[in-house]
Design a binder for these strands. Structure first.
Ligand SMILES: [Mn+2]
Ligand SMILES: [Mn+2]
Ligand SMILES: [Mn+2]
Ligand SMILES: [Mn+2]
Lengths: 218, 218
DNA sequence: TTAAATTATTAAGCATACTTAAATTAAAAT
DNA sequence: ATTTTAATTTAAGTATGCTTAATAATTTAA
């Protein structure tokens, strides 16, 4: 293939399939910030290429080929993120955007070399699992958004959403990182904001922030 | 800018300017393997963008902005090559193609980080000089193609053309690398092929091969 | 210095990946 | 069950970066 747009469509589809393995066009459009019409267009092409199953007005599915292509894109993305973070020393709030471009520009050979250098990492800097060359995903602990914790519950951060630089920058600043313990001290019904304890220090965070941080579900 | 095509045009123009700082469209077309018509088209766009000076039927020049953009592209390319070769362990015959894609997909910040990691390298794996962030090129020794050496002359390889994988693979195989000494034992007028000595071993090489290897001019 | 060859430009057309607007279908609300 | 809203598709159009064919200008050779 080798087509940045198509690769981005496949990644978005793969990462947003529902429990039936389907996705609706408007979700794709929203994630890619393009019109629904453009998505319809592209879905027809992807179907002709054999990457998706497309029937008008029905949920979109990935074919086996589409899924494996998409999974490989996710692999590329996350291996780049680990590499940029661990080897190049780029902060975790910068690696996602950089990887979003590099993922389309590297040979499988390069990705494999990076993986070896990194000694086969299983998770990216934000806690997302990295598919192996064979397409297998490592197990990831059950988790839920921090926003769902009850008052006085404590849990451990195991994943954060990685697509917004300023979000990551801010949570780093207040001491949130992977494996960090967080306690919810107070939940406010009015705006769902909460007071949390990190390293003994109290912070007020919005519901939207809490929705993008994921903690262990024991 | 951020446009792969335009970046490639600027690189090719920069690397192929004649001594008057000009280049003709057909050279660009040949280097990019596209039609002359496409080049005329794009030159108009690049002129409108302020990157080149374009007057119908005249030699093309880079503006100051165009030159600095192009120089930075060359910098990106060569830093990637060094990184891939030295850090990732990719052989020198593979790094050019990989860098040709990565050069368009990396932030200046990433390039600068790679440069620091590599401790400000001055030459790429093929002996080409790397422009500094400020656009300065390190001095490179005077050199000439191996094909111009006289019989029984010996000289040191300081640069090789990097755009053909099989060429690089072959010359590696027969022991040619940077800083290697080569002696010309015999030159044949018929096809300009020559017998050379590398590490005491004799090899027959074609004129075309010899034209792509550059040795010190003392 | 004229003719021939080469190079450059224009013109028309194509594929890709978008857009907005209008029409159609499906889903949700009453 | 009907209406309203939302999602999807179709249609028409745009910008980009190419193509080939025809034309024009320049360069080279005779
Ligand atoms: Mn990411
Ligand atoms: Mn990530
Ligand atoms: Mn190169
Ligand atoms: Mn090189």
């Amino acid at each position: 293939m080798k087509n940045i747009s198509k690769e981005d469509y496949l990644s978005v589809i793969f990462k947003n399939l529902n429990y039936d393995g389907e996705i609706k066009p408007n979700i794709i459009a929203a994630k890619l910030s393009i019109s629904n019409a453009a998505v319809t267009d592209m879905l027809k092409k992807l179907a002709k290429d054999g990457f998706v199953v497309y029937k008008r007005y029905k949920g979109i599915q990935l074919t086996e080929e589409g899924e494996s292509y998409a999974r490989n894109m996710v692999r590329r993305h996350r291996i780049w993120e680990v590499f940029l973070n661990q080897v190049v020393g780029m902060p975790w709030d910068k690696v996602h955007d950089e990887a979003n471009r590099l993922e389309h520009s590297s040979s499988d050979d390069l990705i494999d070399r990076l993986e070896v250098m990194l000694d086969y990492p299983e998770y990216d800097p934000h806690g997302d699992p990295i598919p192996s060359k064979e397409g297998k995903l490592p197990k990831i602990k059950k988790h839920r958004p921090l926003s769902e914790l009850k008052e006085n519950e404590t849990s451990t951060v195991i994943r954060v959403n990685d697509f917004d630089e300023s979000f990551l920058k801010y949570i780093s600043k207040i001491g949130i990182k992977l494996k960090e313990k967080i306690t919810v001290k107070e939940r406010r019904t009015f705006d769902k904001s909460m007071e949390i304890l990190i390293n003994g220090k109290p912070w007020n965070i919005s519901n939207k922030l809490a929705q993008n941080i994921f903690v262990e579900m024991k």
